[in-house]
Design a protein around this nucleic acid. Structure first.
Length: 271
DNA sequence: CCTAGACCCTGTACGC
DNA sequence: TGCGTACAGGGTCTAG
């Protein structure tokens, strides 16, 4: 499901809905995720207040009070993290339920279980977060930095943009959209894109920012923390549009496989 | 080092 | 209707 804009949308929603709320009960019905949820987490969550909800890359970080430390949550491909009001019906694959004092529940639901839900130990902080590249909106994601990084890589630019060690938050959808807006063919070796580094920095920020402002993209059944859809999918220029006409030149949008994922591009606009 | 590919898992869409 | 296949927004590990 989620690239940076979707995760940020979820974060903002949760902040406004449950920041400061107290967890009165926790229920975990499946522990088998990318990393096993440790036994006994339920007990350690009881009575904790959620002080703040942050984000690093596509990871959500929930700060708890009372020495509860932090929870790290990743949505993988199919994960959802949302608040359910009293009386709303339960769905399938609701693996973690945090009941709040007012009766609402925070639900972590993830059909494919590629996500994770963990107390953030030192070890996990090191293995999950330490190797991550700069945030796209941070100053250290600069044109110079990107130019130097691209110069060292012969891999296709599409693959490189999705590498979370280079810059975090760009996934399969936004990589295709960024390359369309910068007129770069997704198969171009990264080192041949050095001259476009400054433009890439701008466009990556622009695309992600627009998507955040649209409340993320909703494909299939993704929803934000309140269960609402995003709107950015209506702004896709190439993603998921194979065979349709390019909005600029009317050529047919093509689809190729790169690193096991689909890439979409206009063969005329993106040489 | 670097790369391509398999793999984790379930749901859905589509062709036969 | 049912079955088989391919594919889905991510990340990690392995083999070459």
């Amino acid at each position: 499901m989620p690239e940076l804009p979707e995760v940020e949308t979820v974060r903002r929603g949760l902040c406004s809905l449950v920041e400061g709320a107290q967890i009165v009960d926790a229920r975990i019905t499946c522990r088998k995720f990318r990393i096993l949820i440790p036994e006994g987490l339920e007990q350690s969550l009881k009575g904790r207040r959620i002080l703040s909800i942050g984000r690093r890359a596509k990871y959500l970080l929930l700060e708890l009070d009372g020495g509860g430390g932090r929870l790290v949550v990743h949505l993988g491909m199919s994960g959802k993290f949302f608040v359910r009001n009293v009386g709303q019906q339960q769905g399938k694959h609701e693996h973690v339920t945090l009941r709040l004092a007012d009766g609402r529940e925070i639900i972590f639901q993830d059909a494919r279980r590629f996500g994770l839900f963990l107390p953030l130990t030192e070890e996990h902080a090191a293995s999950l977060l330490e190797h991550l590249g700069p945030e796209p909106f941070a100053e250290d994601f600069s044109a110079d930095y990107l130019a130097q990084s691209l110069a060292r890589k012969g891999q296709a630019i599409k693959i490189v943009l999705m590498d979370q060690e280079l810059v975090v938050g760009v996934g399969n959808i936004y990589a295709s959209e960024v390359l369309f807006r910068t007129s770069i063919n997704p198969a171009t070796p990264a080192r041949d894109c050095v001259h476009k580094a400054a433009e890439l920095v701008c466009v990556i920020r622009e695309v992600l920012q627009e998507a955040i402002e649209a409340g993320g993209s909703t494909l299939r059944d993704y929803a934000n923390a309140s269960g609402d859809s995003g709107y950015f999918q209506h702004n896709f220029k190439v993603y998921g549009r194979a065979g349709e006409s390019c909005v600029v030149c009317a050529s047919k949008i093509e689809s190729i496989r790169q690193g096991g994922r689909s890439s979409f591009f206009c063969p005329a606009c993106q040489k």
